[in-house]
Amino acid sequence: MHPLSAYIEGVGLLGPGLADWPAGQAVLGGREPYRPHKTVLPPPALLPAAERRRSCAIVKLTLATGLEAIAAAGLDAASLPSVFSASGGDGENCHIICEMLASDDRQISPTRFHNSVHNVAAGYWGIATGAMTTSSVLSAFDASFGAGLLEALTQVVADNIPCVLLACDTAYPEPLYSARPIPDALGIALVLAPHRSARALAQIRVGLTEASADLLDDPVLENLRIAIPAARGLPLLRAIALRQDQHVVLDYLDSTRLAVAVTPC
């Protein structure tokens, strides 16, 4: 199989102690120490007031990271196909619905219900950006970052078009947390393109492998990589931040990982 090739034109990042891509680049590139603190989600300014009020954590995270990546790429969000990948829907919203459905009053609110769908972030993304383009909305549990990257790459390669990957996960409250311990929100957005532009950060060539996934050296960052599914993409961001030829293996399915050759532009 020939590896799937694409150029990374822009990166968005938001997570615990990772305020944006420039800050994350400094940490992952080893120029700044990692100082974890709770993820701060900015209000979704691009949404109309009614939608802003109704939006949940995964919507805010997706908008923040996606818009950062697309601004860096110098592209128009309305014209980009998108791939949304998340382990699950909004955890807080799911908890409240399940609590109500187990109570004597099962009348959940319309907003609760429409925020429960896995594609809630994709729906709000369309409303915020005006993008009428295709969007793939995916879940692969802990393999969600790898699955999203592969789906985005097949869009770029099969159809020769750019696309934005938005891999985001948010925290689960108790009692769900004990069953699915995602401690905080983290999102990675990548703008991928078939051809190199002046803004390209790196070329990636991706194939399937049975090799084990790379770990991160910093034990606190490595804990983060394991704890939040979207953070399984951090070794790729580290390779981009180091700005030298790198081979990384990203986590994907139990039997299959992604081998990524990263060449800085």
């Binding site: 969007s135 699955a147 097949t154 099969a158």
Partner: peptide
């Protein structure tokens, strides 16, 4: 099975959209 695998969950379009994901995967030779 050990090949690429994913759920598409875009509400009521989900199991039409899977044909699109499969098309791209087949087209790229994965």
């Amino acid at each position: 099975l050990t090949g690429p695998a994913v759920v598409v969950s875009s509400a009521c379009s989900s199991s039409a959209k899977v044909f699109a994901s499969a098309r791209r995967m087949l087209a790229t030779g994965l």
